[in-house]
């Protein structure tokens, strides 16, 4: 199945309260007026887009409706779709340098899916024929190393690890040396979950990044912020603070196979300009796809 279809299929399991609400509004009159737009804005908020993004979308929609005089259900739906895509920003992909060492650093708050995504990425890179190395830089969580070991075995990826409780920066140091020695194309670094309001943990991340910059100055380092699609407005704060502390290159939106349709991605992209790169659609190794903004927005909206 093409990635695009996988994405769409993964999102198909539920209908959102948004699309139900949209249709309810439409059936009452078949057209939209200003009072309905207030309710539409609320429906966006109910999909976790947050108030600022919802307001921005509505303002623009209101203006366009006025200018064009288009108020039918289909027209409003089409314009709203455009607005949401607009808020998400231009499409970006996870891009690796074709030669030399790439380092992919997984960061995020606790329990979002960093380790699982690291495992899935191993499989993806292996399929692309890249030599990959994994680093277990979560030395804090109980059995975090064993969990990563499982993924390393399952995907045939060499794993560099120390024991629980050791210095994560030291693990990264070793892993970089090992990746260089093996002539690896990608080094994936799994890190411990950390809440962005804990300065000491954010400092630890900084230390890891300094080690990478010092030991692999020529490598292309991509920092991926892993965000759980079930998260509410705190995701925006996460993106803002991780961006500041670790210059995040893109977001992985995980658990999109659940109830939540991840509307917060719109808030994140709109308020922080960090692009959404990948989507997690399950716990299995192949449940990772490129984020497709159009399918994503369609999954939030009712069928045309």
């Amino acid at each position: 199945m093409a990635l695009f279809d996988r994405f769409r299929k993964g999102l198909e399991k539920t209908r959102t309260s948004f699309s139900e609400g949209f249709n309810r509004l439409a059936t009452s009159l078949g057209i939209y007026d200003a009072s309905m737009l207030d309710e539409l804005e609320m429906l966006l908020v109910s999909a976790d887009t947050g108030v600022p993004a919802a307001t921005a979308a509505m303002e623009s929609l209101r203006r366009r409706m006025k200018e064009s005089g288009q108020v039918s259900r289909a027209q409003v739906l089409q314009m709203l779709r455009d607005e949401l895509l607009n808020l998400l920003g231009p499409t970006s992909r996870l891009e690796l340098a074709p030669s030399g060492l790439n380092i992919v650093l997984m960061v995020g708050v606790n329990g979002t899916g960093k380790t699982t995504t690291a495992g899935k990425l191993c499989a993806r890179f292996a399929a692309e024929g890249r030599r990959t190395v994994l680093a277990a830089a979560d030395t804090f969580r109980a059995a975090a190393i064993e969990q990563l070991e499982h993924w390393a075995k399952a995907t045939g990826t060499p794993l560099i690890h120390h024991s629980e409780g050791s210095d994560p920066a030291a693990v990264v140091f070793d892993a970089v040396q090992s990746a260089k020695a093996r002539g690896a194309g990608v080094l994936i670094v799994d890190t411990a979950g950390r809440l962005h309001n804990k300065q000491n943990l954010m400092d630890e991340l900084n230390k890891i990044r300094r080690v990478i910059a010092r030991e692999a100055p020529d490598a292309r380092c991509t920092t991926l912020l892993v965000i759980d699609a079930t998260t509410g407005q705190n995701a925006v704060v996460q993106a803002r603070l991780f961006k500041e502390a670790a210059s995040v290159d893109g977001v992985v939106l995980t658990k999109l196979d659940g109830n939540a349709k991840g509307g917060v991605a719109i808030a994140v992209a709109y308020e922080t300009r960090v692009p959404i790169l990948l989507a997690g659609l399950g716990e299995q190794v192949d449940d990772l796809v490129d984020f497709d903004a159009a399918s994503f927005v369609d999954s939030l909206l009712p069928t045309p």
């Binding site: 976790d48 079930t230 998260t231 109830n259 939540a260 509307g263």
Partner: peptide, 15 residues
């Protein structure tokens, strides 16, 4: 329940 959960918390808890 994760304190960071968004609007879907209701659906999840009810389910």
């Amino acid at each position: 329940v994760d304190a960071m959960t968004g609007q879907e918390a209701v659906t999840i808890a009810s389910a």
